[in-house]
Design a protein around this nucleic acid. Sequence first.
DNA 1: AGTAGTATCGCAAGTAGTAGCAATAGCGTA
DNA 2: TACGCTATTGCTACTACTTGCGATACTACT
Lengths: 141, 141
Amino acid sequence: MDLVTALHAQGKRLTLQRSLVLEAIRRSRHHTTAEEIARRIREQHPQIDPSTVYRNLEALEELGLVTHTHLNDRITRWHRADVERHGHLVCRACGSEQEVPMASLEPLAARLRRDQGFEPDLAHSAIVGICRTCRSVPSGR
Amino acid sequence: MDLVTALHAQGKRLTLQRSLVLEAIRRSRHHTTAEEIARRIREQHPQIDPSTVYRNLEALEELGLVTHTHLNDRITRWHRADVERHGHLVCRACGSEQEVPMASLEPLAARLRRDQGFEPDLAHSAIVGICRTCRSVPSGR
DNA sequence: AGTAGTATCGCAAGTAGTAGCAATAGCGTA
DNA sequence: TACGCTATTGCTACTACTTGCGATACTACT
């Protein structure tokens, strides 16, 4: 099923703006910000408003083509949905990030599914805490 | 150790604004918003700026007296640090929230500690996903 | 009690994103 | 190809904070 068909299946339309946002997400390797996508698109098409970018990210997310993740309390990171999912650990002391395979998080997912009937998306928000190095140093890093 | 001593130990000072914020947090039962605290304080002290409330929440958090949690992508919830910690499950389809005891999350915490040397705070961000009822109904709720 | 040093304050401007609205433009149908 | 319906757009305003700055006021010290 191609893009147009997928869009139409949800009563959505194909617009220049929409395909530019999708293209930008696909070009950028990993965890981009909406601001960055908007900036890149506006280099070639200055008339396209940032709010349109935000709305299209949301629309493409409803289509299952892109996803967003929260790595910190501030900004939202966007990426294509077809990359391998993984969790994130971010240190609240030094800000370092590390990835953790979904398999490590799966036992918790299984437990929540069994005990609460809840299907969790453990890749959606980063897990905050204190990383190995900051734990060993007495006062942060 | 009382409040003033705790403050001074970190080179912080006791101000009217600061104690009003702490008092407001202590009075409010559960998961308040900064806006709500600011609103309540400004009823009696209209000259106190919301930004002061935000800064004091942060200062009191550094002191270990209050904490914040993210229940959704939008607003931050604040509460006193001495209540029993627990995780949150929030459904992205219907928005319902449920609490989950820390004990259920502890196995994952232990695993991250062991495998990555990372001490996670699994109460900091809610776990998003799909709740039991929304899973059983085909198209959301 | 008086004073110096600096944490904290109120205010105004900035950031990341959301929402309302009239104008525009995809898309199915004629 | 033209037409109507309505999704989408650009614009502006708003939300929830955050940040910079000069003025104020806690504290420690004399």
